[in-house]
Simulated assay, not measured.
Amino acid sequence: MTDKPQAPADKPSEQPSESLTPALEAQAVAEYLRAHPEFFVEHEDVLVELRIPHQRGDTISLVERQLKLLRERNIEMRHRLSQLMDVARDNDRLFDKTRRLILDLLDATSLDEVVIAVEDSLRQEFQVPFVSLILFSETATPVGRWVNSSEAQQAIGGLLSGGKTVSGTLRDHELDFLFGEEQRKEVGSSAVVALTHQGLHGVLAIGSRDPQHYKSSVGTLFLTYIAEVLGRIVPRFTNTLRSVR
């Protein structure tokens, strides 16, 4: 007996082509919108982002042009808002670090504690790679770094005369005085502020390896606050510190 020809085995069912997926998704979206006609009333922000052509021939209607402009402005405003939020968060963090440092300075019971609080906070909390706190005195002090008035005026008199925070790229001899010859080679930009209160008592300088980090237009409000507090606290602990003015 000859075997009867067998019916061809059923072919496995083919999976839907991936190219059909977008069409299926579009159909599902369309069905959802038909079932929920109030959707765009409750989600107007989505409506602004939709692209709804309203063309006659090869021309674009005024309505579509207006919607396009509104969409672009909406995206631009979102970017600006995001940038403002980033700045606000950064300022919040800076304020909190500054507040903790100022409280430590107010609690300090010696000049040694003042110097340690400033240097540790700026290096560890503020993540500043180069920190220089120099006190001005005609006689040697056992704490921190000190220089006499004539040496300070000769080296950085131009930075102290204005009474304001100076930021940007400093000259080599100024960097040598503030950070030392070895560190000066690594400093790309700096911010310098005098410690003043009824006289000039010292200088506080911070530096970055990035030449663009401390631009002349960069706000130095928090550094100025720290310096103002130091200008009032430092003279309390020693009578040997004198104004260079």
Rank of each mutant, 00 (worst) to 15 (best):
P12Y: 07
Y225R: 15
T196R: 15
L69C: 02
L69F: 11
E119F: 12
L94M: 13
E228H: 08
P12E: 09
K164R: 13
F39C: 02
L101K: 05
L94C: 03
L178Q: 05
S243F: 08
S82H: 10
I226Q: 09
H213E: 12
D120R: 15
D172T: 13
L111Y: 00
L84T: 06
A194I: 05
L67Q: 12
M1K: 12
P235K: 14
R245F: 06
V166A: 11
N74K: 15
L106W: 09
E42N: 00
L195R: 10
L101E: 01
V87H: 09
R100M: 13
D45F: 09
V29P: 01
P142S: 10
L230Q: 02
S17T: 06
L94A: 10
I52Q: 14
L160D: 08
L70Y: 14
P211M: 01
I116Q: 11
P37W: 09
L241F: 04
Q153E: 09
V41M: 04
T224M: 11
A88H: 04
G144S: 10
K164G: 03
S243I: 10
A155H: 08
L159G: 13
R100K: 14
I52F: 11
L241N: 08
R123Y: 06
R93C: 05
T196Y: 04
E31H: 10
L105I: 11
G162H: 03
F95P: 00
L175F: 01
L70A: 13
F179C: 00
D3R: 10
S189G: 05
D176T: 06
I226N: 10
A35W: 02
G168V: 01
R80N: 14
F136A: 07
V218R: 13
D58C: 04
M77N: 11
L122H: 02
R65C: 09
T59N: 13
